[in-house]
Design a protein around this nucleic acid. Sequence first.
DNA 1: TCAATTTATTACTGATCAGTAGTATAACAA
DNA 2: TTGTTATACTACTGATCAGTAATAAATTGA
Lengths: 137, 137
Amino acid sequence: MNLSTMVSRAPQVDSTTTDSDCRLVKLSPETLQLVADFFKVLSESSRLQIVCALKLGEKNVSEIIEATGLGQANVSKHLKILAQAGIVKRQQQGVCVYYQIANAFVFELCELVCDSLSVQIQQQSEQIAHLEAFRKA
Amino acid sequence: MNLSTMVSRAPQVDSTTTDSDCRLVKLSPETLQLVADFFKVLSESSRLQIVCALKLGEKNVSEIIEATGLGQANVSKHLKILAQAGIVKRQQQGVCVYYQIANAFVFELCELVCDSLSVQIQQQSEQIAHLEAFRKA
DNA sequence: TCAATTTATTACTGATCAGTAGTATAACAA
DNA sequence: TTGTTATACTACTGATCAGTAATAAATTGA
């Protein structure tokens, strides 16, 4: 069972629309809050730095601190948030604690955003170029 | 030119890894900040409500207010944020201002998160069921 | 046992932001 | 013009949160 079917059984569902073309339309505010909370976890560059640092494989906390340049308490806090969101997994090995990506789809998300941003930036720079050409003429 | 190539020209790039398997590893903190800022726009349930309200087509501000139940000033503020992020487009028609989704990939993002969350919830409920069975035995 | 290392937690501060009341602006109608 | 409707803006408040210093806890080695 996925979230859509869970939500489609909830009372606040709008059943006047078809299933195929508008899954998001049916989501209740409570479900949207869950989605928003997940996006919030990824909305801090420090946490994205940690995620990127784990892209090539697991690291312990000290290695993450070194890779990101963040403070120890800060990294520990962010790792807790990432773990609670199910984005990283924790594994203790003696004194050290190793973290790894638990859900690789975060990279898919980030790359989608990157691609969209690059298109936006390209369009903006083209518009600026047009404006420049117009000003000179 | 996309963001990846932009970033791969920046000095802080890690060139010890291959291009295909780790685009995100190369992103500078500045680029990650842009990605984080985009996620932040989607990290409020009110804004996701507005996005969902526009899923089936454009709406003017009054219609969005009615669809979401949010306050007028609040909706206006969120629409400005969504427009600045390039997620919605603004179009004035007489007294009314119509907004529509400018970049449909936000739905792709949301559905990816929804699917991931549903898997997590399902796994959690299975774990709880196992624990229950263990407790009874 | 004692010291060193690694990670987590707590308490605090400053910054950011959502929501709102009030106000401004602009278009249309009478 | 005057009033009405639709939208945007400003200023404010309370809540949330990132970063940090200090401390705690747990493991390892001497």
